[in-house]
C-alpha cells in the first residue's frame, strides 16, 4: 500500500471509497425509488429540498445519481472480471502454446480489435436485447483484446525463464505450470490493466445507456444523461450532476490505478537492478 503515499493514489482511493459507500448505502441515502415521480418537473437544484433538482418527469435527480452509482460499480466490477476471464485465458494459452494455436488466437484477438468497439456493442445489444447480463457480456466482449495481448506478452516473456523450464523438467502439467508459475508472476501488470478497465466499463455502460441501449429497468448515469440531453438548455442539472459523478468516478479510478502501477513498475525495476 505504498502507493497511498502519493497524493494521486490517496485521492483516487478516497474517491473510490465514496463511490462504494454511495453504492452500498443507496437505499439509506435515498430511500425513495429513483423512478418515482415525487414533485413538480424541472425543479432547479435546491428548490423545495431537492438538492439536485428534478427531471422532466419530476423524478429526484439526486436519488438517480445515488442509485446510478450502484449500477456503475456493479457493471464496472462485473465486466472487468468477465474481461479478465476471457482475456487472461486467451493470452495465457496463446502465449504458452505458441505455434498455430497462438496464431489462431492472436488473429481472433485482432479480429475483435479492428471492429469499432461501440458499433459491435450496439449491434450485439440490438439483437440480444439490453439487460444487465447482456450489457456486462457485451462490455467484456469489446474490452478483452488488450488484456489478452498483455497476458500473451507476459506469458511469452516468462515461459523461457528457468523456473518454468525447471517445472517442465519435473513433469508438471501445462495447466499446473500456467496457474502455478506463469499466472502469479504475470499478475501485477494484469491487475493494473484490469482495474483500469473498470473505469472504461463504466464509461461504456453510460455510452450505451445514452444511446438508449441501457437496461430499461436500472437508473444509470448514462440513462440520465441520455434522457436529459434534450433539455440541456432549460434544465442543465439533469445532465450535469450524473455527468460530474461519472467524471469523478472515472478520474478517481484512473488516479488510483495509475499510482498503483507506477509503484509496481518501480518495485519491479528495483528488484531487477539488484
Amino acid at each position: 500500500m505504498r502507493f497511498l503515499r502519493k497524493p494521486s493514489g490517496l485521492i483516487g482511493l478516497i474517491g473510490i471509497a465514496c463511490l462504494l459507500l454511495l453504492a452500498l448505502f443507496a437505499n439509506i441515502l435515498a430511500p425513495a425509488d429513483p423512478w418515482a415521480i415525487g414533485a413538480r418537473p424541472l425543479l432547479a437544484p435546491l428548490e423545495k429540498g431537492y438538492i439536485f433538482g428534478t427531471d422532466s418527469l419530476g423524478r429526484d435527480v439526486a436519488a438517480g445519481v445515488i442509485h446510478g452509482a450502484r449500477v456503475s460499480v456493479f457493471i464496472g466490477v462485473a465486466s472487468a472480471l468477465a474481461t479478465g476471464l476471457i482475456g487472461v485465458t486467451m493470452g495465457l494459452v496463446a502465449g504458452y502454446a505458441g505455434g498455430w494455436l497462438d496464431a489462431a488466437l492472436t488473429r481472433t484477438t485482432e479480429f475483435f480489435q479492428v471492429i469499432p468497439a461501440i458499433v459491435l456493442a450496439v449491434v450485439v445489444l440490438s439483437f440480444a436485447g439490453p439487460n444487465m447480463i447482456t450489457i456486462i457480456l457485451v462490455i467484456a466482449l469489446i474490452s478483452w483484446p488488450p488484456i489478452a495481448r498483455l497476458a500473451r506478452a507476459e506469458t511469452m516473456a516468462l515461459r523461457h525463464r528457468e523456473f518454468v523450464m525447471a517445472a517442465r523438467l519435473q513433469g508438471e502439467s501445462r495447466l499446473s505450470i500456467l496457474t502455478g508459475h506463469i499466472l502469479p508472476n504475470a499478475a501485477p501488470p494484469l491487475i493494473a490493466a484490469l482495474s483500469l478497465s473498470i473505469a472504461t466499463a463504466i464509461l461504456t455502460e453510460s455510452a450505451l445507456a445514452f444511446l438508449g441501449l441501457g437496461d430499461p429497468n436500472t437508473m444509470s448515469w448514462g440513462y440520465m444523461i441520455g434522457s436529459g440531453r434534450t433539455m440541456m438548455r432549460q434544465a442543465w442539472w439533469i445532465t450535469a450532476f450524473p455527468g460530474v459523478a461519472l467524471m469523478l468516478s472515472v478520474l478517481c479510478i484512473n488516479l488510483a490505478t495509475g499510482a498503483y502501477s507506477d509503484d509496481l513498475t518501480q518495485r519491479l525495476t528495483q528488484k531487477g537492478s539488484q
Binding site: 528457468e162 523456473f163 523450464m165 517445472a167 519435473q170 508472476n185
Partner: peptide, 24 residues
Amino acid sequence: FQDPATSLNPRMPILETVTRGARA
C-alpha cells in the same frame, strides 16, 4: 540451471517449489 535467481519461482515458497514436481 545457471542462475538461481531466475530458476526459482519468486512468488512461490521453497517447499512448494521443491515438492510441486514430485506431487505432479
